[in-house]
Write a protein that binds this DNA or RNA. Structure first.
Length: 638
RNA sequence: GCCUUCGUAGCCUAGCCCGGUGGGGCGUUACCUUGGUAAGGUAAUGGUCGCGGGUCCAAAUCCCGCCGAAGGCUCCA
């Protein structure tokens, strides 16, 4: 069924003559209806009463928005070249009419089978004109795509939506299994989740999408209170502001991940943020999901903001001269930003943003042997990167997604990944390949609402080399298409911070100290003088500690000792040092250690420096992002 | 996009159901306090109660419309 829906000031029509033997009886008088939603309707082969109800229900949704309760069903064959038989069409039209009346809509209908002359005046607002298509079999398709984030650049099919949806029903049906550590695959219903509570939560989230939690995500108040980030009402939802502390944390994570990818062999590049909407390699893909882009017009060009670094790197690789000797070739960019115009209701805190920072690393490989080796290396890299960020195997679950043919062919390879991970993995298996990747894994953090968010991912792309005409020259001097791996070792940086905050909250709930890893703590050491008299003793001590690349600050505000300690604890500062008479005389510091729930330890300055230095060894360093003296700091959040 | 909830000072919040001088806390500022490991005291400061309309002698409170936000659903290429 095809419907053209027009919110009209008025419509007039006049039946002229019967066009079909099945035409109903009608008078040849002009009819005029004011303030009405007109549904020009073509009934197509196979349309049933289900379709007519669906169409009316959709129309009702609009009526509510338009604050109209009047429709005119206007049979209009010209919308389709695949019309059903007239008698069936007439029945369906009548069903629509009956159903609409039953739903309390003031319903009019133009006569069926007549050639009519009409005039229609259409309103000027954005919702006034809508076209819809209903395929009878496509009504209840839940095209579960299985993409949970990561660097994803193209889909496989680009037919018109209806046939794609039909295809999707068959192709996209997911069969869920658990991939055990020995590489064996068992249906998810048969798996005993005892001892794997997190995996069970993840499986529920992925398969059933059920959860009964209504609490606010804990990381949202935390990101505000800790002055990391906040919503920016002056921008679009999902574009957040970063305060000095948050900027520092984010910057350190960015540096760390970038360093690791460079050590792995990724060549860092930088590519444009915006691309031509009508570029041939990009257009076919974009047309499929037009609503997901930020689109901007600039003079006569239509541009869209990138949602990953794929385009830039692929266009770069397209123009490059690549020999098999240089493979695997790894390009990397830290996208600040990638843009995805998620629907407003989907944007949450730092978990799901419209503008986010994502390391995106592509490896161009000669053949499948090379892919396997590289894929394994990157699997290790991703797990190790997250581990260093502060997210360990207990914090996340892995999903692996592939077709059953791919599994049959590469069983050992898939098994080796599972064995390496050492925990059972959720496997989503398809009968046929629908996406551009043959194999993908994604690593999912499970938060306090039992929801999952994808962090790292890696995918074997078997299509985009051809689409973007990326080639390398093999031993025989012939051009070949490489296989492309897409990897985001940490996932979005903002999402890492979300995960760290959610994890900290959970630790607190289970009686442990909530804190960020020491290398990411904006203040690592706080000095609190017991009274103003000791304030001038602070400065040299602070300098000595700072010289060892440790971030130290001094609480010179006019409040009490107890309050200063309370505030330092609420800032999650790992080491708090109170200095008074005793310390000045003995030279020994009284250090309150957050990790040990505030236990005090007597340490020399050198001991303190060596303890902290050990904690942050191998991590990037940035100086204190705020003035050393607390009295000099503004309060960014009430 | 849909559903639900919520908009009261820089921040958190009571009051709203049942209309009658908007109350508290945090912060900020000043003064007192100069301390020994999670909130010292006093005072001052700060409000078109989201916006517009309606009902009423009278609206933060009731009604209608709009705007904004959050959560859920869907979604997550």
């Amino acid at each position: 069924m095809r419907i053209l829906q027009l919110h009209s000031n008025f419509i007039t029509y006049k039946p002229v003559e019967k066009e079909l033997p099945q035409a109903e009886e009608a008078e040849k008088n002009e009819v005029r209806i004011e303030e009405v939603v007109v549904l020009f309707t073509a009934v197509e082969e196979g349309d049933s009463s289900q379709v007519s109800q669906k169409a009316i229900n959709d129309a009702r949704a609009f009526l509510g928005k338009l604050k109209v309760n009047k429709v005119l069903i206007y049979p209009f064959a010209h919308l389709s070249s695949n019309l059903s038989k007239p008698q069936e069409a007439f029945n369906v039209i009548k069903e629509m009419e009956d159903y609409a009346k039953q739903k309390g809509i003031e319903t009019y209908r133009a006569p069926f089978g007549w050639n009519k002359q009409f005039t229609v005046s259409i309103k000027g607002h954005p919702l006034a004109e809508q076209a819809r298509t209903y395929a009878p079999e496509a009504l209840n398709i839940e095209a579960k795509a299985g993409e949970t984030g990561g660097s994803v650049c193209g889909s496989k099919k680009e037919e018109e939506p209806v046939s794609a949806a039909l295809k999707a029903e068959d192709t996209l049906k997911s069969f869920w299994h658990i991939l055990q550590t020995d590489g064996s695959l068992i249906p998810v219903e048969e798996f005993k989740f005892k001892g794997y509570a997190n995996l069970q939560k993840f499986a529920n989230y992925e398969i059933k999408k059920t959860r009964a939690v209504t609490i606010m995500p804990p990381h949202v108040p935390l990101m505000k209170r800790l002055e990391i980030a906040d919503y920016e009402s002056g921008s679009d939802p999902g574009n957040v502001r970063w305060y000095p502390k948050g900027r520092m944390i984010k910057s350190l994570l960015e540096q760390y991940v970038a360093n690791r990818i460079q050590a792995y062999g990724g060549m860092e590049v930088e590519t444009p943020l915006m691309y031509d909407f009508h570029h041939p390699s990009l257009a076919s893909y974009l047309n499929r999901f037009p609503a997901r882009q930020y689109v901007l017009k600039s003079e006569d060009k239509e541009l869209f903001l990138r949602f990953a670094a794929c385009f830039g790197q692929f266009l770069m690789a397209h123009d490059a001269q690549i020999s098999y000797k240089q493979l695997p070739l790894k390009l990397f960019e830290l996208t600040r930003y990638s843009f995805r115009r998620e629907k407003s209701g989907e944007v949450v805190g730092l978990k799901r943003l419209r503008a986010f920072t994502m390391p995106d690393c592509h490896a161009f490989c000669a053949d499948f042997d090379q892919v396997k080796k590289e894929f394994m290396t990157r699997f290790d890299l991703c797990i190790d990167v997250l581990d260093n960020i502060g997210l360990v195997k207990d914090d996340y679950e892995i999903a692996m997604r592939f077709t059953k043919d791919f599994y049959a062919e590469h069983k050992e390879f898939i098994a080796s990944l599972a064995t390496k991970f050492g925990k059972p993995i959720l496997a989503e298996v398809w009968n046929e390949r629908f996406f551009y990747f043959a194999l993908k894994w994604d690593l999912n953090f499970i938060d306090n609402q039992d929801k999952a968010a994808a962090l790292s991912t890696d995918q074997i792309d078997v299509e985009n080399a051809e689409r973007y005409e990326i080639t390398y020259v093999d031993e025989k001097g012939e051009k070949q298409y490489p296989l492309i791996l897409h990897c985001s070792p940490s996932g979005a940086i903002e999402r890492d911070i979300y995960a760290l905050l959610e994890k900290a909250y959970r630790e607190q709930m289970t009686g442990k100290a909530s804190m960020l890893p020491v290398w990411l703590s904006p203040t690592q050491v706080r000095l609190i003088p017991i009274s103003d008299k000791f304030l001038d003793k602070m400065e040299p001590l602070a300098q000595q500690i700072t010289a060892s690349c440790i971030r130290v600050d001094i609480d010179d505000t006019a409040s009490t000792l107890q309050k200063k300690i309370r505030e330092a604890e609420q800032e999650w500062i790992p080491y708090i040092i109170v200095i008074g008479e005793k310390e000045v005389e003995s030279g020994t510091l009284s250090v309150r250690v957050r990790e040990f729930k505030g236990k005090q330890e007597a340490l020399s300055v050198e001991q303190l420096i060596s303890i902290v230095s050990e904690k942050i060894a191998g991590k990037p360093y940035k100086p204190l992002p705020l003035p050393v003296y607390l009295s000099k700091r503004p309060q960014f959040h009430g």
